[in-house]
């Protein structure tokens, strides 16, 4: 009995080791090929670089120039940070308002927001990009409005789910002591929302950072975020410079992997909470 249990444990270990290797393998292939000449990537991506195929950092310098990677990184970072900040601010206030104020208007708002969560982007992409152009918000600042508006369904839903569960007595006490709603919200309610806010921030960050279609359709011709810049390497009908592609894929993954290794605990907790509530 003991012996067989020990065996199964090592079989499980070996199997998981194989799965982990399979998970890491594609990333290693990308790193390896980013140092190889573009001519040796498509046909032999699994071969290690050798004296014939090694090209040093050529792919990196070429790729950075072709994609404008640094400015793409800047746009991605700015759009993600600003969008997530304003989503958290606007939706926490909105969620508190529609949870505490009862009436037809607030319940209609709640249902519309919930409904927006299930509507796929393809439904609104054409009219949204036309409208963004007409309103003059098709730039890296205006797109924040679009992210707040499209992201506020899920965030408001999750915030108001949590606000419903916290006792109203605390807020009442603050108001009886003379605090107005603004003070009550920012001093009493907001601090209690911290863990929900972290969950929402993680989910929205993953969405905005990786989003391709919205930035492509609204600001893509002038300002490229990282996913748009990478797809841009494909160009028209010509062949893709796979060397530059590999280098840029690695540079695109690097910040995500570092971020994940640092905030792993919060990220796993966040997606778990998001999955169960969403």
């Amino acid at each position: 009995m003991q012996v067989s249990r020990k065996y199964t444990k090592w079989i499980a270990f070996a199997f998981l080791l194989a799965v982990a290797a399979y998970t890491v393998f594609p990333i290693i292939v990308v790193v390896m090929n980013s140092f190889k000449s573009r001519l040796f990537i498509s046909n032999a991506p699994f071969a290690l670089p050798d004296s014939d195929t090694f090209v040093g950092l050529t792919n990196y310098t070429g790729g950075l120039m072709k994609t404008g990677f640094f400015s793409a990184f800047g746009y991605s970072l700015w759009i993600t940070v600003a969008s997530v900040f304003f989503i958290l601010l606007c939706t926490s206030m909105l969620a508190w308002y529609i949870t505490r104020v009862h009436g037809a208007v607030t319940s209609i708002i709640y249902y519309l927001l919930t409904f927006s969560m299930i509507v796929p982007f393809q439904m609104v992409m054409f009219t949204m990009s036309k409208e963004a152009n007409m309103l003059g918000i098709d730039n890296p600042v205006g797109i924040i409005i679009l992210y707040v508006g499209f992201g506020c369904g899920m965030a408001t839903f999750m915030f108001s789910g949590f606000i419903k569960s916290i006792p109203i007595a605390l807020e009442e006490a603050a108001m009886i002591d003379g605090a107005n709603p603004v003070r009550t919200f920012f001093m009493i309610v907001l601090p209690m929302l911290k863990s929900t806010a972290i969950t929402i921030a993680i989910l929205e960050t993953m969405w905005v950072w990786n989003d391709y279609l919205m930035p492509y359709l609204t600001i893509g011709t002038e300002y490229r975020t990282i996913p748009v810049a990478i797809q841009y390497l494909r160009g028209g009908y010509g062949s893709v410079d796979m060397g530059a592609m590999m280098a840029m894929l690695f540079l695109a993954m690097l910040p995500v992997i570092i971020f994940y290794l640092i905030c792993q605990k919060y990220i796993i907790k966040g997606v778990l909470a998001g999955a169960v509530k969403g």
Partner: peptide, 22 residues
Amino acid sequence: ALFALPGLICFLIAFLVPFVWG
């Protein structure tokens, strides 16, 4: 106007108008 409006305006621009229009 302070609590609900900022989020609602964004929601209107990014979702409600494009949805109905579409």
